[in-house]
Amino acid sequence: MRVVAFLSSRAFALFLLSVSVAVLILRVKRPELYSPLFLLIPASLFLSLVVCTARRLRGGRKDVRFLGSILFHGGLMIWVATLFASPLVRFSARLFLVEGMVIGMEDREAVEIYERPFLGGAPPLFSFLLRGYRERYEEGMYPVEYTAMLSVGYMDGDRYRTEEKRIRINEPVDLGGYRFLFESSGWAPLFRLRRDGEVLFERYIFLVSITEEEDSFKIDSAGLEVFTRFFPDLFMEDGKVGTRSRVVRNPAFGIKIAREEAPFVDIYRGVLRPGEVAEVDGMRLEFVDLRPFVVLLMVRDPLYPVVFAGWGLGVVGLLFRYGPWRRV
């Protein structure tokens, strides 16, 4: 009985809330010190809420405000419970899709799986095709729309099905039991590196497409690191290089190449347009092609409705608790 009394005491609840604040601040300020052991705090909070609510329900007072308090704390319990249950059932992955190329779930370079349901089986067998990518800017600078058509092929029982939908940022689509979200997009160059006719490297690279930001990638087979800056609408005047707008009209990459063992010494510096070639140390770096790419999130979270039911319960509970009701 003493344990139950302690767990349901207000002092213990306040102590747990205060510790939660301390742990959350630690999580923001010193994330490296965060440990999964800290999950004991929400677990204790859940236990305290359950015991306290059960005791209060057995108590005498029953009015609208009491009901509101119970509903609110019930909503909180659902929230805390889903914190623990979510990793057991959630699936999430990030897909890097280049326009016009079919990608399968097994493609390790284009698909990164972050969460697999603990209780689930193998990742689903999907194939993806992106086409009709479009981006729109106001005054050539301010993005107002990114959109593309997404085709998804998947096994539905013993039948192979294909569905196609338009995707946009903020407008997720549901296909084959999964939710697909347009996260970001950009322009992927296809670079090919040759030495004496032998191809050492050939890939579409997902690089940052904002001119203000530099990006880089490594070519391990040649021991090189390539630093890039994208100019969607290149201009070159008096030795200066820049972009007139963010609209892809005259695309080019500013390129710096260094050896991996000496990253601060450039062995090549220049600007490459699609179809152009850079001669580096007896090698040829070809800028073969430029295509748009979209980063998609693929998610399945069966607990999603439960989380928001908990939230709705909490809001209703607070309104009952603090609304202008009279005790009945």
Binding site: N170, D301, V307, L318
Partner: peptide, 18 residues
Amino acid sequence: FVMVGSGAIWAYGLWGRY
């Protein structure tokens, strides 16, 4: 509370997580 919840709904539609 409403702000946090509505932000979570928006985040789920934008980043696939609340």
